[in-house]
Amino acid sequence: MRTPITTYLSLAVLLVLLVALPTLADLANYPAFTSVATRVLIYGIAAASLNFVLGFGGMVSFGHAAFFGIGGYVVGILYQHYSLGEPLFGVFPGSNQLLVTVPLAVLVSGAMAALIGALSLRTGGVQFIMITLAFAQMLFFLFVSLKTYGGDDGLIIRRANELGDLNLRDRQTMYYLCLTIAVSFLFLLWRIVNSRFGNVLIGLRQSERRMAALGLSAYRYKLAAFVISGMGCGLAGALMANFLRYVSPDMMHWTKSGELMVMVILGGVGTLFGPFIGAGAFIMLESLLAAWTENWQLGLGFILLLLVLYTNGGLQALFSRLFRRDA
């Protein structure tokens, strides 16, 4: 496939803008915007992971908040054991090193995704939606009743993880860290989607029977995609734990799964940048409307409704229709 030069150009412009964003925010006397952007990037990673199974693989998971939460809790639990000096299960010491906690969070959420995916993928359609929801809710209730780790009140992570000499409490440092990770993650996703694996996955969404005729095991491909997606959500959760310095069962509540799904649909299902656009739009709308009026839910509701009714394919489709009418 030939990618037009304009696409590369606009990507480069976008990247420059993103790198300059904290400086621009400071110049505009609105430094907190950097943090909003960090949140968008983190949710963007989670939404893009969900989109990988949902948009490319056609698996509508309503339980991705589980992996988001697990990623966060891995960071939180490791920090708690580190700060109290009590090893986990009496064996593993805690940690506050980002290079330990985040990869571990990714691994643990991947393992959890393997387990949940292995069971859930035996169903399909609405049943799949509901069974993923079921597993996420079970984890939610589990963490709510875990008193050792704060239960419903959650865990406060007093100090952010350490990464060399970087101060992750600093707004801009955290932003650049998340930007780097988000860009690498997106690149990775792009490679996967355009690989043979990605093609099989998309083929499976279109027709499982055709792929089976080619001698491909749908179950295995789907499970692999589900695990990758769970790992991505875990990564986002681990970053969120570092950004908020707080984790709570809220992170895995079904409404969070719903929000991630809304971000994906809002941005455009099955597109690479869609989830990031969706995350950005959702968070900005929510905070702008909430700052403007206490009846913000009414406004958000109408905007979502109108977007569905009058754009087919989310914001990305809307943008491409607006800007590339001649193309």
Binding site: A32, S35, V36, R39, G154, R171, M240, L244, Y246, S248, D250, E286, S287, A290, A291
Partner: peptide, 12 residues
């Protein structure tokens, strides 16, 4: 009632 929102508002 979202902890993350509370923190973001405070920072802003």
């Amino acid at each position: 009632l979202k902890p993350g929102n509370g923190r973001q508002i405070a920072e802003r």
